[in-house]
Amino acid sequence: HNLTITQGKLFFHYNPKLCLSEIHKMEEVSGTKGRQERNDIALKTNGDQASCENELLKFSYIRTSFDKILLRWEPYWPPDFRDLLGFMLFYKEAPYQNVTEFDGQDACGSNSWTVVDIDPPLRSNDPKSQNHPGWLMRGLKPWTQYAIFVKTLVTFSDERRTYGAKSDIIYVQTDATNPSVPLDPISVSNSSSQIILKWKPPSDPNGNITHYLVFWERQAEDSELFELDYCLKGLKLPSRTWSPPFESEDSQKHNQSEYEDSAGECCSCPKTDSQILKELEESSFRKTFEDYLHNVVFVPRKTSSGTGAEDPRPSRKRRSLGDVGNVTVAVPTVAAFPNTSSTSVPTSPEEHRPFEKVVNKESLVISGLRHFTGYRIELQACNQDTPEERCSVAAYVSARTMPEAKADDIVGPVTHEIFENNVVHLMWQEPKEPNGLIVLYEVSYRRYGDEELHLCVSRKHFALERGCRLRGLSPGNYSVRIRATSLAGNGSWTEPTYFYVTDYLDVPSNIA
Rank of each mutant, 00 (worst) to 15 (best):
N435C: 02
S262H: 07
K278H: 02
Q380E: 14
A309Y: 07
E404V: 10
E362M: 09
P270G: 01
K278A: 15
V439Q: 06
S342N: 08
I366K: 05
Q384E: 06
P475A: 11
L228P: 05
T288I: 15
L464N: 15
T307D: 15
I276T: 09
K432R: 07
S486D: 01
N208L: 07
S509T: 11
W428P: 00
C468N: 01
E249I: 06
L237E: 15
N339I: 13
K233R: 11
S223P: 15
G489M: 09
H352Q: 13
K317M: 06
G467D: 01
G234K: 08
V329M: 11
G374Q: 13
Y478R: 00
K278L: 08
R319I: 06
L369T: 04
S320L: 10
N208Y: 12
D229Q: 06
L235C: 09
N383M: 13
N255H: 05
S257L: 12
T328L: 09
T401S: 04
R390S: 12
N206D: 03
M402P: 06
A399P: 07
F215T: 07
W216R: 06
Y445M: 08
R319S: 11
E351D: 11
T373C: 02
S398L: 12
F355A: 12
G264F: 02
S248I: 12
H254W: 15
Y396A: 08
R316H: 13
K253P: 07
R353T: 04
A336M: 08
I366W: 01
P354N: 07
R376S: 07
Q380H: 13
I377D: 00
D261G: 10
Q380M: 05
S344D: 03
E451H: 15
P431Q: 01
P338L: 09
S223M: 14
C269A: 09
T303Q: 06
R447M: 03
E452R: 07
F298E: 08
I418Q: 07
T343N: 12
Y259I: 04
S305M: 07
S257R: 07
S203E: 11
F499N: 00
Y212P: 00
L237C: 13
S203N: 15
C231E: 02
L470S: 00
R459H: 15
S284M: 14
E442Q: 06
R301W: 12
A405K: 14
F289L: 09
R447T: 06
L225N: 03
F226T: 10
P475R: 07
R471F: 15
S344G: 05
G489P: 02
T373D: 03
K302V: 06
Y292Q: 02
K406A: 14
H294A: 14
D311G: 09
N206K: 05
V439F: 09
G234Y: 07
K460E: 04
V345T: 09
Y375S: 00
W216P: 05
F462S: 04
T347N: 04
V297C: 04
A488Q: 06
C382I: 01
E442L: 13
W428V: 00
L321D: 04
E465Q: 14
D385Q: 08
L232I: 11
E404N: 10
S341L: 10
V296E: 07
C266M: 06
E260C: 04
T333Q: 15
P332R: 11
S392V: 04
C456L: 03
S474A: 10
T303R: 09
P387T: 14
K361H: 04
D506E: 06
K236E: 14
V324E: 03
S283E: 14
N206H: 11
T210G: 07
V414W: 01
F355I: 10
V329A: 07
A395S: 11
P270I: 12
L379H: 00
L455P: 01
E430S: 12
T415Y: 13
A405P: 06
H371A: 13
H416N: 06
F226I: 06
A220M: 08
R471D: 09
A309H: 12
I482H: 01
V507Y: 06
Q256I: 14
T386H: 07
F226S: 08
P332Q: 12
P434Q: 04
S398M: 08
F372Q: 03
S492G: 12
L232W: 08
I418M: 01
S363P: 05
V443A: 03
T494K: 02
V327W: 15
Y230R: 11
N360Q: 07
E258N: 08
E279I: 05
V214Q: 00
W242R: 07
L505A: 10
D385W: 06
A309P: 09
E452Q: 08
D385R: 11
T272A: 12
K271H: 07
S342P: 05
D229P: 10
L280P: 15
E389T: 12
M402Y: 12
S320Q: 08
C391E: 01
E265H: 08
T401Y: 00
T386A: 12
N360W: 15
S492R: 10
P338G: 11
F226A: 07
Q429K: 08
K406R: 05
D323G: 15
C231T: 04
C382L: 01
R466Q: 03
T303P: 13
V214W: 00
L470R: 01
D291Q: 12
V393H: 12
V358K: 13
D409K: 08
S392A: 03
D273S: 10
L228Y: 15
V358M: 04
P338Q: 12
S257E: 15
E351I: 15
E265S: 07
S305Y: 06
S283N: 12
T485I: 13
S398Y: 14
G374S: 07
V334I: 15
S304E: 07
R318S: 10
Y396M: 05
R481E: 03
R400G: 06
N295M: 14
I276N: 13
V331K: 06
R319A: 12
V414E: 01
A336P: 11
T386R: 14
L379Q: 01
P270A: 06
V423I: 08
K460M: 11
S444C: 14
S341K: 09
E221R: 03
P205W: 07
S223E: 13
F298D: 14
E362P: 04
R353M: 04
A395K: 15
Q380F: 15
V397T: 04
C456P: 03
A407L: 11
Y292H: 04
P314E: 14
A335K: 10
Y375R: 01
R400H: 14
G374C: 14
T307N: 09
H454N: 05
S243P: 12
H371R: 12
Y292P: 06
T333F: 15
V358L: 08
P300D: 15
V297G: 13
K236C: 11
E260P: 10
A220S: 12
P349T: 11
F337H: 07
R481I: 06
E442M: 04
L369H: 01
S283K: 05
K357A: 10
A395Q: 13
D222S: 10
E404I: 04
S262E: 01
Y292G: 03
K432F: 09
R218T: 13
E417H: 04
L235P: 07
S304R: 07
E417N: 04
P403W: 13
T328F: 14
Y292R: 07
K460Y: 05
K317P: 07
D503S: 10
P300V: 04
L505K: 09
W242F: 05
V331T: 14
H416E: 04
H254M: 06
P338F: 11
E227I: 12
T401E: 00
L213S: 13
S344Y: 07
I482T: 02
R370S: 13
V501E: 00
P300G: 06
C456A: 02
L505W: 06
S398A: 11
G264A: 15
P403T: 11
K357T: 09
K432V: 05
M402K: 15
R353Y: 12
D503R: 13
L453M: 08
L369P: 00
Y375V: 06
E442A: 05
S342L: 14
R319V: 09
